[in-house]
Protein backbone atom coordinates (compact mmCIF):
# COMPACT_ATOMS: atom_id res chain seq x y z
CA UNK A 1 0.00 0.00 0.00
CA UNK A 2 2.61 2.51 1.10
CA UNK A 3 4.86 1.43 -1.77
CA UNK A 4 2.17 2.20 -4.32
CA UNK A 5 1.71 5.57 -2.70
CA UNK A 6 5.41 6.27 -2.87
CA UNK A 7 5.94 5.39 -6.50
CA UNK A 8 2.98 7.63 -7.36
CA UNK A 9 4.13 10.54 -5.29
CA UNK A 10 7.90 10.50 -5.90
CA UNK A 11 7.69 12.30 -9.28
CA UNK A 12 5.60 14.93 -7.54
CA UNK A 13 8.32 15.44 -4.96
CA UNK A 14 10.91 15.85 -7.71
CA UNK A 15 9.28 18.99 -8.94
CA UNK A 16 9.22 20.44 -5.45
CA UNK A 17 11.57 23.30 -6.37
CA UNK A 18 9.06 25.13 -8.50
CA UNK A 19 6.17 24.87 -6.07
CA UNK A 20 4.72 27.95 -4.40
CA UNK A 21 5.01 28.10 -0.61
CA UNK A 22 1.31 27.34 0.06
CA UNK A 23 1.68 24.20 -2.07
CA UNK A 24 4.80 23.19 -0.12
CA UNK A 25 3.01 23.61 3.20
CA UNK A 26 0.11 21.57 1.78
CA UNK A 27 2.56 18.84 0.72
CA UNK A 28 3.95 18.78 4.26
CA UNK A 29 0.44 18.52 5.73
CA UNK A 30 -0.39 15.58 3.47
CA UNK A 31 2.93 13.94 4.30
CA UNK A 32 2.00 14.42 7.95
CA UNK A 33 -1.33 12.61 7.43
CA UNK A 34 0.48 9.74 5.69
CA UNK A 35 3.08 9.45 8.47
CA UNK A 36 0.40 9.54 11.19
CA UNK A 37 -1.63 6.86 9.35
CA UNK A 38 1.44 4.62 9.01
CA UNK A 39 2.48 5.06 12.65
CA UNK A 40 -1.04 5.36 14.12
CA UNK A 41 -0.39 2.99 17.08
CA UNK A 42 2.29 5.41 18.36
CA UNK A 43 -0.11 8.36 18.57
CA UNK A 44 -3.24 6.96 20.14
CA UNK A 45 -3.48 7.34 23.93
CA UNK A 46 -6.47 4.94 24.16
CA UNK A 47 -7.99 1.99 22.35
CA UNK A 48 -10.14 3.68 19.66
CA UNK A 49 -12.84 0.99 19.89
CA UNK A 50 -13.11 0.68 23.69
CA UNK A 51 -16.32 2.22 25.04
CA UNK A 52 -16.58 4.01 28.43
CA UNK A 53 -12.87 4.75 28.44
CA UNK A 54 -13.86 8.19 29.72
CA UNK A 55 -17.12 9.93 30.66
CA UNK A 56 -19.76 10.32 27.94
CA UNK A 57 -19.60 13.47 25.78
CA UNK A 58 -16.73 15.05 27.68
CA UNK A 59 -15.30 18.32 26.29
CA UNK A 60 -11.61 18.43 25.30
CA UNK A 61 -9.19 18.07 28.19
CA UNK A 62 -5.63 16.89 28.72
CA UNK A 63 -6.94 13.33 29.13
CA UNK A 64 -9.13 13.52 26.00
CA UNK A 65 -7.66 16.01 23.52
CA UNK A 66 -10.77 16.09 21.31
CA UNK A 67 -13.29 15.05 23.93
CA UNK A 68 -15.26 11.80 24.07
CA UNK A 69 -18.30 10.56 22.14
CA UNK A 70 -21.73 9.36 23.26
CA UNK A 71 -20.44 5.96 24.38
CA UNK A 72 -17.35 7.36 26.04
CA UNK A 73 -14.81 6.55 23.35
CA UNK A 74 -11.78 8.85 22.96
CA UNK A 75 -12.41 11.02 19.86
CA UNK A 76 -8.72 11.86 19.32
CA UNK A 77 -7.73 8.18 19.23
CA UNK A 78 -10.58 7.46 16.84
CA UNK A 79 -9.70 10.32 14.49
CA UNK A 80 -6.04 9.21 14.38
CA UNK A 81 -6.99 5.58 13.84
CA UNK A 82 -9.58 6.66 11.25
CA UNK A 83 -6.84 8.11 9.05
CA UNK A 84 -6.04 4.51 8.14
CA UNK A 85 -9.36 3.47 6.56
CA UNK A 86 -9.71 6.95 5.01
CA UNK A 87 -6.27 6.97 3.38
CA UNK A 88 -6.15 3.28 2.45
CA UNK A 89 -9.57 3.43 0.77
CA UNK A 90 -8.67 6.70 -0.98
CA UNK A 91 -5.28 5.49 -2.24
CA UNK A 92 -6.53 2.11 -3.48
CA UNK A 93 -9.56 3.68 -5.19
CA UNK A 94 -7.65 6.57 -6.75
CA UNK A 95 -4.82 4.32 -7.94
CA UNK A 96 -7.35 2.01 -9.61
CA UNK A 97 -9.33 4.88 -11.15
CA UNK A 98 -6.35 6.84 -12.48
CA UNK A 99 -4.37 3.72 -13.48
CA UNK A 100 -7.15 2.13 -15.51
CA UNK A 101 -8.46 5.49 -16.72
CA UNK A 102 -5.02 6.51 -17.99
CA UNK A 103 -4.53 3.20 -19.78
CA UNK A 104 -7.94 3.35 -21.47
CA UNK A 105 -7.51 7.02 -22.38
CA UNK A 106 -4.10 6.48 -24.00
CA UNK A 107 -5.31 3.38 -25.81
CA UNK A 108 -8.36 5.22 -27.16
CA UNK A 109 -6.23 8.08 -28.48
CA UNK A 110 -3.65 5.71 -29.96
CA UNK A 111 -5.95 3.10 -31.55
CA UNK A 112 -8.73 5.56 -32.42
CA UNK A 113 -11.42 4.05 -34.67
CA UNK A 114 -14.06 1.80 -33.16
CA UNK A 115 -12.45 1.44 -29.74
CA UNK A 116 -12.16 5.20 -29.35
CA UNK A 117 -15.75 5.72 -30.43
CA UNK A 118 -16.96 3.05 -28.03
CA UNK A 119 -15.02 4.53 -25.11
CA UNK A 120 -16.26 8.05 -25.83
CA UNK A 121 -19.93 7.12 -26.20
CA UNK A 122 -19.89 4.86 -23.14
CA UNK A 123 -18.25 7.55 -21.02
CA UNK A 124 -20.73 10.12 -22.41
CA UNK A 125 -23.57 8.02 -21.07
CA UNK A 126 -22.05 7.28 -17.65
CA UNK A 127 -20.89 10.83 -17.05
CA UNK A 128 -24.56 11.82 -17.45
CA UNK A 129 -25.60 9.86 -14.34
CA UNK A 130 -25.32 11.64 -10.97
CA UNK A 131 -22.42 9.85 -9.20
CA UNK A 132 -23.97 9.72 -5.73
CA UNK A 133 -27.24 8.19 -6.97
CA UNK A 134 -25.52 5.44 -8.95
CA UNK A 135 -23.17 4.67 -6.06
CA UNK A 136 -26.07 4.44 -3.58
CA UNK A 137 -28.01 2.12 -5.91
CA UNK A 138 -25.04 -0.15 -6.65
CA UNK A 139 -24.05 -0.39 -2.98
CA UNK A 140 -27.65 -1.13 -1.97
CA UNK A 141 -27.89 -3.83 -4.63
CA UNK A 142 -24.52 -5.51 -4.03
CA UNK A 143 -23.86 -4.78 -0.34
CA UNK A 144 -21.44 -2.39 1.33
CA UNK A 145 -18.37 -4.65 1.28
CA UNK A 146 -15.23 -2.53 0.74
CA UNK A 147 -14.65 -4.24 -2.65
CA UNK A 148 -18.03 -3.03 -3.92
CA UNK A 149 -17.50 0.52 -2.70
CA UNK A 150 -13.96 0.75 -4.09
CA UNK A 151 -15.08 -0.66 -7.44
CA UNK A 152 -18.02 1.67 -7.97
CA UNK A 153 -16.16 4.80 -6.83
CA UNK A 154 -13.14 3.88 -8.95
CA UNK A 155 -15.43 3.32 -11.92
CA UNK A 156 -17.13 6.70 -11.45
CA UNK A 157 -13.79 8.50 -11.60
CA UNK A 158 -11.98 6.34 -14.14
CA UNK A 159 -14.44 7.31 -16.88
CA UNK A 160 -13.63 10.97 -16.19
CA UNK A 161 -9.87 10.35 -16.10
CA UNK A 162 -10.01 8.33 -19.35
CA UNK A 163 -11.55 11.29 -21.21
CA UNK A 164 -8.92 13.73 -19.98
CA UNK A 165 -6.01 11.39 -20.70
CA UNK A 166 -7.41 10.70 -24.17
CA UNK A 167 -7.43 14.41 -24.92
CA UNK A 168 -3.88 14.80 -23.58
CA UNK A 169 -2.63 11.85 -25.65
CA UNK A 170 -4.37 13.04 -28.82
CA UNK A 171 -2.23 16.17 -28.65
CA UNK A 172 1.03 14.19 -28.84
CA UNK A 173 0.06 11.10 -30.85
CA UNK A 174 0.81 12.86 -34.15
CA UNK A 175 4.33 13.90 -33.05
CA UNK A 176 7.25 12.65 -35.15
CA UNK A 177 8.78 10.52 -32.42
CA UNK A 178 5.53 8.58 -32.08
CA UNK A 179 5.26 8.08 -35.86
CA UNK A 180 8.90 6.97 -35.91
CA UNK A 181 8.26 4.41 -33.18
CA UNK A 182 5.22 3.09 -35.07
CA UNK A 183 7.27 2.79 -38.28
CA UNK A 184 10.06 1.09 -36.31
CA UNK A 185 7.50 -1.58 -35.54
CA UNK A 186 7.45 -1.15 -31.76
CA UNK A 187 4.77 -3.17 -30.01
CA UNK A 188 1.71 -1.33 -28.74
CA UNK A 189 2.70 -1.92 -25.12
CA UNK A 190 6.23 -0.60 -25.48
CA UNK A 191 4.93 2.32 -27.52
CA UNK A 192 2.52 3.24 -24.75
CA UNK A 193 5.09 2.70 -22.02
CA UNK A 194 8.08 4.38 -23.69
CA UNK A 195 6.68 7.07 -25.99
CA UNK A 196 3.19 8.01 -24.83
CA UNK A 197 2.94 7.52 -21.06
CA UNK A 198 6.03 9.58 -20.11
CA UNK A 199 4.64 12.49 -22.11
CA UNK A 200 1.23 12.52 -20.44
CA UNK A 201 2.57 11.64 -16.99
CA UNK A 202 2.11 15.24 -15.84
CA UNK A 203 -1.56 15.15 -16.74
CA UNK A 204 -1.92 11.77 -15.04
CA UNK A 205 -0.27 13.14 -11.88
CA UNK A 206 -2.58 16.14 -11.72
CA UNK A 207 -5.49 13.73 -12.30
CA UNK A 208 -4.31 11.60 -9.38
CA UNK A 209 -4.19 14.58 -7.04
CA UNK A 210 -7.56 15.93 -8.21
CA UNK A 211 -9.31 12.55 -8.06
CA UNK A 212 -7.78 11.70 -4.67
CA UNK A 213 -9.51 14.77 -3.25
CA UNK A 214 -12.84 13.82 -4.84
CA UNK A 215 -12.51 10.18 -3.74
CA UNK A 216 -11.85 11.12 -0.09
CA UNK A 217 -14.91 13.38 -0.08
CA UNK A 218 -17.08 10.83 -1.89
CA UNK A 219 -16.16 7.91 0.38
CA UNK A 220 -16.64 10.16 3.41
CA UNK A 221 -20.09 11.11 2.11
CA UNK A 222 -20.99 7.42 1.64
CA UNK A 223 -19.84 6.70 5.20
CA UNK A 224 -21.88 9.64 6.46
CA UNK A 225 -25.01 8.36 4.70
CA UNK A 226 -24.52 4.88 6.16
CA UNK A 227 -23.56 3.30 2.83
CA UNK A 228 -19.79 3.22 3.29
CA UNK A 229 -17.57 1.80 6.01
CA UNK A 230 -19.50 -0.08 8.71
CA UNK A 231 -20.19 1.65 12.09
CA UNK A 232 -17.62 0.53 14.61
CA UNK A 233 -15.05 1.82 12.10
CA UNK A 234 -13.61 5.25 12.97
CA UNK A 235 -13.77 6.29 9.30
CA UNK A 236 -14.43 10.04 9.54
CA UNK A 237 -17.69 10.06 7.57
CA UNK A 238 -19.06 7.34 9.85
CA UNK A 239 -17.92 9.29 12.94
CA UNK A 240 -19.66 12.46 11.71
CA UNK A 241 -22.83 10.46 11.12
CA UNK A 242 -22.73 8.97 14.64
CA UNK A 243 -21.96 12.29 16.30
CA UNK A 244 -24.60 14.24 14.39
CA UNK A 245 -27.38 12.86 16.61
CA UNK A 246 -25.86 14.31 19.78
CA UNK A 247 -24.58 17.58 18.33
CA UNK A 248 -26.94 19.66 20.50
CA UNK A 249 -25.44 18.09 23.65
CA UNK A 250 -21.81 18.16 22.48
CA UNK A 251 -20.15 19.30 19.28
CA UNK A 252 -16.94 17.40 19.99
CA UNK A 253 -17.78 13.96 18.54
CA UNK A 254 -18.25 15.58 15.09
CA UNK A 255 -15.73 18.41 15.41
CA UNK A 256 -12.62 16.18 15.36
CA UNK A 257 -13.43 14.07 12.29
CA UNK A 258 -14.94 17.04 10.39
CA UNK A 259 -11.78 19.09 11.00
CA UNK A 260 -9.51 16.17 10.04
CA UNK A 261 -11.33 15.72 6.73
CA UNK A 262 -11.55 19.46 5.97
CA UNK A 263 -7.82 20.06 6.51
CA UNK A 264 -6.85 17.03 4.41
CA UNK A 265 -8.97 17.96 1.39
CA UNK A 266 -8.01 21.64 1.50
CA UNK A 267 -4.33 20.65 1.60
CA UNK A 268 -4.86 18.26 -1.32
CA UNK A 269 -6.52 21.00 -3.37
CA UNK A 270 -3.79 23.55 -2.62
CA UNK A 271 -1.15 21.01 -3.64
CA UNK A 272 -3.08 20.10 -6.81
CA UNK A 273 -3.31 23.76 -7.80
CA UNK A 274 0.41 24.12 -7.17
CA UNK A 275 1.34 21.07 -9.25
CA UNK A 276 -0.97 22.08 -12.10
CA UNK A 277 0.51 25.58 -12.17
CA UNK A 278 4.06 24.21 -11.94
CA UNK A 279 3.49 21.82 -14.86
CA UNK A 280 1.85 24.54 -16.94
CA UNK A 281 4.74 26.95 -16.53
CA UNK A 282 7.25 24.15 -16.93
CA UNK A 283 5.86 23.04 -20.27
CA UNK A 284 4.54 26.14 -21.94
CA UNK A 285 6.23 29.08 -20.28
CA UNK A 286 4.43 31.75 -18.32
CA UNK A 287 1.13 32.81 -19.82
CA UNK A 288 0.33 36.42 -19.12
Amino acid sequence: MSLAAHSKFSPVLHLGQGLSWPARIAALVILGYLVVALTAPLWIPYDPFRIMIGPRLAPPSLQHLLGTDQVGRDVFSRVVWGSRPVLVLALVTTTLAVGIGTFIGILAAYWQGVFDLLVMRLTDVFVAIPPLIIALLVISALGNAPVVMISIVAFIYLIRTARILRAATLAIVTEDYVTAAVLRGDSTLSLIGVELLPNVLGTAMVEFAVRAGFVIVFIGALGFLGFGAAPPSPEWGVMINEGRGVILQSIWPVFGPAMAMAILVVALNVLTDGIARRLETGHQGETA
Binding site: F224, L248, I251, A258, M261
Partner: peptide
Amino acid sequence: VLIGMSVPEFVIAIFLMIGLAVV
Protein backbone atom coordinates in the same frame (compact mmCIF):
# COMPACT_ATOMS: atom_id res chain seq x y z
CA VAL B 1 -13.23 29.82 -2.58
CA LEU B 2 -10.55 27.16 -2.32
CA ILE B 3 -11.86 26.11 1.08
CA GLY B 4 -15.48 26.17 -0.15
CA MET B 5 -14.58 24.04 -3.17
CA SER B 6 -12.54 21.47 -1.25
CA VAL B 7 -14.53 20.82 1.91
CA PRO B 8 -17.49 18.51 1.25
CA GLU B 9 -20.97 19.96 1.66
CA PHE B 10 -21.94 17.74 4.58
CA VAL B 11 -18.86 18.90 6.51
CA ILE B 12 -19.64 22.54 5.68
CA ALA B 13 -23.21 21.90 6.80
CA ILE B 14 -21.93 20.42 10.08
CA PHE B 15 -19.68 23.45 10.67
CA LEU B 16 -22.54 25.85 9.89
CA MET B 17 -24.74 23.92 12.30
CA ILE B 18 -22.06 24.06 15.02
CA GLY B 19 -21.46 27.76 14.43
CA LEU B 20 -24.94 29.17 13.78
CA ALA B 21 -27.19 26.74 15.65
CA VAL B 22 -25.21 25.41 18.62
CA VAL B 23 -22.45 27.86 19.63
